[in-house]
Amino acid sequence: MKNFIKIIKVIFTILLFAFLIAIAYFIALGPKERRLEIAENLQSLYFSQSMFDILKLQNPDYSDAYFEQSVAFNKSGEYAKGFELLDKAVELDPKLHLGYRGWIKLRKLRDFDNALSDFNTLDSLTPKFVDAPWGEDIDFLRGECYFGKKDYQKAIEFFKQNIKNQKKGWVDIYSFVYLGLCEYELGNYEKAISEFQRALNQSEFTPESYYGMARAYQKIGQVDNAKENILKAESNISYKRDDMYNEFLNEIYLSEILDFKQSLNLK
């Protein structure tokens, strides 16, 4: 009986130590890339944050750990903490993280000047290469920054550059939409209509273009065309450009389309 209890104790001790070693491996001893991936997938949990802290402690120069750790803070609106981490990632590897930091400054904070500064620095670090921060053309993003700053002339330059950067047939239709919006803001309504039309030539499901055209046609007194386009904007609203995290600078809503429709005396 004594031996039996002893064997049970030994088995339990081994099992418990195996458990402890497995957890230690999972959290602190496995390959750092694998642990980063796990922590990234558990993003926002305190557990994930602890894994990032351990990774940083073991590898103080591992820029990806700082970058990934920042995501949960920026998503939850804790920007001071988020940017403290992101700044460190940029300091360690500017080429890798400047684009993302600029993108976050533009989309999350609408901090156009600082976003531009990041995009321009990144561009200077990668000569003869068109960067794509977070998968979007750098010139499109710079165009958005200037659009946000209401510097429409400069925005036009960058949206046009973005169109040049793309291959024919692959141009992001929102470059045309933004060009239309910039021309509209500058009072060039006919030019705006032709830019909106370029977006529609690529995709007829672009409610932003129909809405923009309706407003521009109204400005030049072509009310019938304005009515036709506002109806198309309404019927295509489900295809509008949106994002689950943030409102876009050029985002449109059904309510404003309906208001505009009413102002044209349409039911």
Partner: peptide
């Protein structure tokens, strides 16, 4: 000691996986 460590670890993991930033 292994039992106590395992208990502490399980409690820690439970806390860490049930609380989120924000």
């Amino acid at each position: 000691s292994s039992f106590l460590l395992a208990i502490i670890l399980v409690i820690w993991i439970y806390y860490q996986t049930t609380h989120r930033i924000g």
